[in-house]
Design a binder for these strands. Sequence first.
DNA 1: CCTGTGACCGGTA
DNA 2: ATACCGGCCACAG
Length: 111
Amino acid sequence: MNKTMSQKSNTAELKLIILQVVASIPFGQIASYGQIARLSGCPSHARFVGAVLKKLPSKTSIPWHRVINSKGGISFPVDNESFIEQKSRLLQEGVEVKNGKISLSSFGWSA
DNA sequence: CCTGTGACCGGTA
DNA sequence: ATACCGGCCACAG
């Protein structure tokens, strides 16, 4: 009488889905928050994606730095430490970052 | 229960 | 191109 947990679309599971999607972004590739939300099956949860990434421990293996906003930029103020962190990580992966904006050549990733 | 917040997004001016 | 605005929805207090 367990009925399987297939109909468990709770947020806890969505959280895991999101993390998996983010984790599946290839090296040197970029995806937007909205894109992650869509691939997770919840198009209107772009903000939630950010909320999830925020809670990640600093020592995570999740490539959070490969996630940016729909304007193609880093969603941190330029003076923020996280901004520096994300920018340098992207540069390390060969992603072209100009003034906080990512070059369109890095887009085009799909699940 | 109600209110404010946010690593967002798309439309409009 | 930038600026503003309303919608969105989980979460914290």
